[in-house]
Design a protein around this nucleic acid. Structure first.
Lengths: 121, 121
DNA sequence: CAGTATCCCTCCAGATACTG
DNA sequence: CAGTATCTGGAGGGATACTG
């Protein structure tokens, strides 16, 4: 709890993305929604299901999301332990994003969503 | 461009603001997120899993959501065919909300979300 | 290349008041 | 009881310019 709190506070101070949600997360499912409920979150995760991607790749494939919004989304997912950021000290810099096991494990959940949507749409 | 077309049905072509979603819904999963991704949507659905509820009941159980937000949420879910509104001509009016089969069928999806959350939190 | 730093504006969420 | 009507702050998010 205290960790979450400090993260939230830090996010607000730096004017970064703070996901919309009721002020109290009373149910564990809210955490899942917090992770994939953002405007761009799911699209990023979907890209990363196909493997490691770089910042520029994501920006190009995801309908020209602005760098600011993409950064905010990536930070939020990273703080939730869903993806991992790796910077290589090349010139110029190379940064790669990949899903963590926790992120990979979203697959079942997203599959269930896909099943529901396929059935009713 | 005509600014005021029917708002919810033409998500794909409009350049207008679409809340919480990229302007193009390219993937069926986006529909699932559209249904449960709202700030209050999931909480309402969760209540209705326990059976038919009235407006006032929902308002009381869901941490004092404002009537406007609750109405907006209920309308949105109704338009998506997830729940059903029934008004009885009593005095004063009695209105009941219950999940449709489509809404009941969200159960698997939500179960998957719960499993993921339980595993990682 | 992969981001920051700004500016700016849209636009909902929530509060409040009112009503059939 | 079950909603509408109305107002508003401030955050969400885009555009652009800049940088290590």
């Amino acid at each position: 709890m205290s960790m979450l709190e400090s993260e939230q506070t830090k996010l607000q101070e730096t004017n970064n993305y703070v996901p919309k949600q009721p002020s109290h997360i009373e149910c564990s499912i809210e955490k899942a929604l917090d992770v994939i409920g953002g405007k761009w979150s799911f699209l990023v995760i979907r890209e990363l299901f196909n493997g490691t991607k770089r910042f520029g790749e994501l920006q190009r494939t995801i309908s020209s999301v602005s760098p600011k919004s993409l950064t905010d989304t990536l930070r939020h997912l990273e703080e939730n332990g869903v993806l991992e950021r790796t910077a290589y000290p090349t010139v110029p810099v190379t940064v790669e994003y990949k899903l963590t096991p926790k992120g990979d494990d979203l697959h079942q959940m997203i599959k269930a969503m896909k099943l529901w949507a396929a059935k009713w749409y």
